[in-house]
């Protein structure tokens, strides 16, 4: 029998508070590197200028301690918890929300959430967080924060394909979604794709796919890695380019995740993330 590990929720609160500020002020180094690679590959002069400004913006935001995008997003938290962890000191969900509220205040970040899609009253402190819990063996805790802007989330899509439509149908759906998004998703985008599972699982997988670190690293599954490379090429062939002004680099990374699915099903979810890609992870 393994022993229970007690973790004070105040520790989680402090971590969330810190990550909210870091994620919004400092573009992660591997994503800066991905943008630099995009800049080097871009053929359009305007496109290269867009990349240069994005890279300069990342330097200025880190130096000035201000958000690199004004849409400081929805705080999406993936929390993977060992089943031998026992949280003490109060409600875990409330601690996460306190961490978000404190981080958004500390970092001069925008409160961008409304309490209901119907009456649309701002909650004032960017809570609640959107938390996805996973329970695993052991006593570790992994926390990943994804700050999700709405411009690109709005351009995301989910479709229940048929097995007959297959991988070719999936690729057409991805390119169609990118074309429809055009400049509105703020390319160069990172594309998270969730395939399989059920309707709900595909969407969460797509969101989780965005958090892969480093940006643009291939899937460990060779079949998926090949598919990712094909999709990068197909998306860049659209010509949409940086900021949608035309160019050869529309995406800097496609991350595909897959899960067992039903014999009758081929769910595909596509979650887009703009060039302001904000992800931070810690182990507790």
């Amino acid at each position: 029998m393994s022993e229970l590990r007690a973790v004070d929720v105040a520790e989680v609160e402090a971590v969330v508070r810190k990550l909210c500020v870091e994620a919004n002020h400092e573009l992660r180094e591997d994503h800066v590197a991905a943008l630099q690679r995009g800049r080097d590959a871009e053929e359009s002069p305007i496109g290269r200028e867009v990349f240069d400004r994005l890279l300069e913006n990342a330097r200025v935001s880190a130096a000035e301690r201000i958000a690199f995008c004004q849409d400081t997003g929805y705080a999406v938290v993936f929390l993977t918890i060992g089943q031998d962890v026992h949280f003490v000191g109060g409600s875990l969900a409330e601690a996460i929300d306190r961490g978000v509220a404190e981080g958004y205040s500390d970092g001069y970040l925008r409160a961008s959430l409304v309490r209901s899609p119907v009456d649309r009253v701002n909650t004032g402190d960017n809570t609640p967080a959107m938390v996805h819990y996973d329970l695993v063996p052991g006593s570790g805790i992994e926390l990943t924060l994804l700050v999700k802007g709405a411009g690109c989330d709005n351009m995301s899509a989910l479709r229940m394909l048929t097995p007959a439509a297959g991988v070719e149908g999936m690729k057409r759906f991805v390119v169609e979604t990118i074309e429809k998004a055009g400049p509105s998703a703020s390319p160069p985008v990172t594309v998270g794709i969730g395939m399989g599972g059920t309707f709900d699982r595909a969407a969460v997988l797509a969101k989780r796919a965005l958090t892969r670190n480093p940006t643009g690293s291939p899937s460990p599954d060779p079949l998926l890695a090949e598919l990712e490379a094909e999709l990068v090429d197909a998306i860049n062939a659209t010509g949409i380019g940086p900021a949608g002004f035309g160019g050869t680099v529309t995406t800097v990374a496609v991350h595909v995740e897959a899960y067992p699915t039903h014999i009758a099903a081929f769910p595909v979810a596509i979650n887009l993330d703009c060039h302001s890609h904000r992800v931070r992870s810690v182990t507790l």
Partner: peptide, 11 residues
Amino acid sequence: GAIEGTAALLS
């Protein structure tokens, strides 16, 4: 068209 993602520069 301005470039989203250059919000710190534009400020």
